[in-house]
Computed example of a mutant assay.
Amino acid sequence: MNENIRIAIAGHGNLGRGVEAAIGNNPDMRLVGVYSRRAPDQIKPRHAETPVYAMEQLPEDTDKIDVLILCGGSKEDLPRQGPELAALFNTVDSFDTHARIPEYFAEVDPVARANNRTALVATGWDPGLFSLNRALGEALLPDGATYTFWGDGLSQGHSDALRRVAGVAGAVQYTRPAQEAISQVLAGERPELTAQKMHKRECFVVLEDGADAEEVRTAIVTMPHYFDGYDTTVNFISAEELARDHQAMVHGGFVIRSGNTSPDTTQVMEYGLKLGSNPEFTASVLVACARAVHRMNALGQVGAKTIYDVPLGLLSRRSPEELRAQLL
């Protein structure tokens, strides 16, 4: 399908740079601009010819952008930017605070609907692809249990939350899955496991000058939705160690559904990801979703949407005829 979808990026951190790379792999799209809260002359896009603008420019450019991909953080950026920008553009974002997704959806939906915009919220690989597999497993094996394991890898959202803590100069967080729990589930057992029992969280933190380490540690381990209730280890390191040892952004995980189709027949469904770059893969999902959002809006499907509302074929660059002939 020979579309020419005009994509813009709001925010130019790791995720925004990943979106730049992903757009280059999709010939039906073109990047029309990067918008940042930083001064435009401080931004170095992947290609020198890519225009860079201040975020304040966005309201003036509504006629130049088909889909705006929001690349801010879930803790502070997206709760504000999502509703504001859904009034002006078709948007895609990776809001990933699972417990607050219904609340966030409710804030974005009326704004997007009132302005005939389509806003796909909370997508990526989890929430996103893993969400699809949780729903699919439950639908196919109603007599069963679903388990989601994250890691071993660096979490962008949790790392961003760490960096927002007062007294933190820099930080990353790794999610470590419990191998014994994975083995139980793959064996077809149905252990009663909370997310806290299935994972450990390990933080590597650089303190600001004069910051109190114990105050920072307490603020981290008690942070709701992120670290509270988890087995969390906080390691204080130097800026040099952070730069030397913690720049790779690997990640991944599994969704496993274990169930029975008859009393003596156990079935196990497994979907897994092993990612060399968390932000680049997340960005690839966002870009495919931008294609779907562009098409959905053209069909009059406005308001906030989640990955459950997106027909799979709309994510693909192939035509329906090609999909039936080549992939079905």
Score class of each variant (00 low, 15 high):
residue 311 P to N: 07
residue 274 K to Q: 10
residue 223 M to Q: 11
residue 260 N to L: 14
residue 294 H to R: 06
residue 306 T to H: 09
residue 291 R to M: 09
residue 272 G to D: 01
residue 234 V to Y: 03
residue 279 P to T: 00
residue 276 G to Q: 14
residue 267 Q to V: 12
residue 263 P to F: 12
residue 263 P to Y: 14
residue 255 V to W: 02
residue 313 G to P: 12
residue 260 N to T: 13
residue 251 H to D: 14
residue 225 H to V: 00
residue 266 T to Q: 13
residue 291 R to Q: 11
residue 297 N to Y: 06
residue 242 L to G: 03
residue 237 I to M: 01
residue 282 T to W: 00
residue 266 T to M: 13
residue 232 T to E: 09
residue 276 G to S: 13
residue 303 G to A: 05
residue 277 S to V: 07
residue 275 L to C: 05
residue 278 N to E: 15
residue 321 E to S: 14
residue 267 Q to D: 04
residue 276 G to R: 10
residue 277 S to Q: 03
residue 282 T to D: 07
residue 282 T to A: 08
residue 260 N to F: 14
residue 242 L to H: 04
residue 236 F to C: 00
residue 261 T to I: 15
residue 249 M to Q: 11
residue 264 D to W: 08
residue 297 N to P: 08
residue 253 G to S: 02
residue 282 T to H: 01
residue 307 I to M: 12
residue 249 M to A: 13
residue 298 A to H: 14
residue 254 F to E: 12
residue 283 A to H: 02
residue 250 V to K: 15
residue 298 A to F: 00
residue 303 G to H: 11
residue 269 M to T: 00
residue 232 T to F: 10
residue 276 G to E: 10
residue 225 H to F: 15
residue 262 S to K: 11
residue 249 M to N: 11
residue 307 I to D: 07
residue 222 T to G: 03
residue 234 V to Q: 05
residue 252 G to Y: 05
residue 229 G to P: 09
residue 238 S to W: 02
residue 253 G to A: 08
residue 256 I to C: 05
residue 307 I to Q: 03
residue 307 I to S: 04
residue 256 I to S: 03
residue 309 D to N: 11
residue 266 T to A: 03
residue 292 A to K: 11
residue 279 P to H: 08
residue 304 A to R: 10
residue 258 S to L: 05
residue 291 R to D: 04
residue 222 T to D: 08
residue 248 A to H: 14
residue 302 V to W: 11
residue 309 D to E: 04
residue 311 P to Q: 06
residue 302 V to Q: 04
residue 241 E to Y: 02
residue 258 S to H: 06
residue 278 N to M: 07
residue 243 A to D: 10
residue 230 Y to P: 06
residue 285 V to F: 07
residue 283 A to E: 03
residue 279 P to D: 02
residue 308 Y to H: 12
residue 318 R to S: 12
residue 234 V to W: 04
residue 223 M to L: 10
residue 252 G to I: 01
residue 271 Y to P: 01
residue 270 E to P: 01
residue 321 E to Y: 13
residue 283 A to V: 01
residue 288 A to I: 01
residue 246 H to L: 04
residue 316 S to D: 15
residue 314 L to F: 15
residue 256 I to D: 07
residue 312 L to A: 13
